Amino acid sequence: MTDIAKAAGCSQATVSLVLNNTAGTRLSQQTRDRVIEAARELGYVAPTFSVSSGSASLSKLDGVIGFVVDQLGTSPEAVVAIEGARQASWNAGNVLLVAQTLGDPAMEPRAIKALTDSGISALIYMTIFTREVEMPAYYYGLDIPIVLLNCYTSDYAFPAVVPSEIAGGQTATKHLIAHGHHRIATITGEPWMQAAQDRLTGYRRALATADIPFDPDLVIEGGWSASAGYSGTMRLLSLPEPPTAIFCQNDRTAVGCYEALKEKRLRIPEDISVIGYDDEDICRHLIPPLTTSVLPHMAMGEWAIEHLDTAVPPRERRHEITKLECSLVKRSSVSSPGGSKADLKVQTA
């Protein structure tokens, strides 16, 4: 494809789109003809070329897209994103090849080389934690489209998609405020993580918008685990004035929160409301089912595939970071302070 691109005077990505006959691409017939003619002259014989109605066309040939992620086993988000990319890839007749690198400085370049040697026409690069990354120089030299998923670079050289975490934290907190809560606690993730920082920022913005004073005693530093949710909830319940609602910044934390509240014989949501974040499968099976926010990794995987055509080299173009909504899934773990009668007033207001 590199040789054909040089001969046809276009990018390797354009060659890939033409040879794979990728649906939905806006390439002129003149460009398609030029690529096919260059392929013929270079003796490229993998597909069978044919001419129909005066224009050249290709028989359908499946493309191959590489998907690199630093970690697969720590949480379901990577698998969900891969599934979103897989669905979008298969819809266009493309195959997805996945590699886990653990961010290893020696093994990651070898994994990328193995993918490029196998003939991938594009690459998606994902990190399990939302963050800014410094892409090694060899990525800039790859002559294929590259999209970043759940991460971004400071030079904005690659299209990037991340969750809208600040808005997600704000939406979750506003939902509690709308039910009449003013003493709202939150159990955060690890403070060095951008997702935890952004969700806390959203929490504080929602309080400020509602003119509710920020109380640092209601913010418990956690660690995304059920044990952190349990211990954090116990600390909150020991306050002279405990909260009426707890925003757990992930669902595993909420599981521990549920256990602590039940141990104290407090009812959810009649005595205290609980809201989570991530929408893991367990949310539907808790008693009561947990109100939570969706991490849009499925949509992010789809977005990455759909925007490969904007990621073609060279890397001089600057791309805005796309943020996808963390929508709220309303279930039964939130009501107004004081129980069902007050909650009915909120619903009818």
Rank of each mutant, 00 (worst) to 15 (best):
D117L: 15
I184M: 07
P191H: 00
A137L: 09
S225V: 07
L200R: 01
E165P: 07
G119A: 02
V162S: 12
S89Q: 04
V162A: 10
L123R: 03
Q194F: 10
A111L: 09
E134Q: 14
I187E: 00
Q170P: 03
S121H: 00
R183G: 11
L176I: 02
V219R: 10
P145Y: 10
D211E: 13
T186C: 11
V147K: 09
D211T: 09
V161P: 06
T233C: 12
I187A: 08
L115N: 07
G232C: 11
A114K: 07
Q197F: 02
K174N: 13
L148A: 08
I124F: 01
A208W: 10
L97D: 03
P109D: 01
W90Q: 15
G229S: 05
R204H: 07
T171L: 11
I212T: 07
P109K: 09
A122G: 12
P159W: 00
Y138I: 02
Q170H: 09
K113N: 12
T186A: 12
A195M: 05
L200Q: 00
E190V: 15
Y139H: 06
S121V: 10
A88F: 07
L97K: 04
I166C: 12
V162P: 11
L207N: 02
R183Q: 05
A160V: 11
D104Q: 03
L102D: 15
F214P: 13
H175F: 00
Y125E: 10
P159S: 08
G232S: 13
S164T: 15
G232N: 04
A226I: 11
G169P: 05
V98P: 07
H175S: 03
S89H: 11
I112C: 09
C151A: 08
G189S: 09
W224K: 10
D155M: 06
I112P: 13
L102V: 11
I124V: 13
L148K: 08
T130K: 13
A99W: 02
V98M: 04
C151W: 03
R131M: 07
A228R: 14
T209M: 08
A228N: 12
G189D: 03
A111N: 10
M126E: 07
L207G: 02
L97I: 14
H182W: 02
G180Q: 09
V161M: 02
E134V: 15
A178P: 04
R131Y: 05
M193K: 15
D215H: 11
I187V: 03
D211G: 13
D155V: 10
L142A: 05
R110Y: 14
P163W: 02
H181F: 06
V161S: 04
V147I: 00
I187D: 00
H182R: 14
Q194K: 14
T127V: 03
V98H: 00
S225K: 14
T127Q: 08
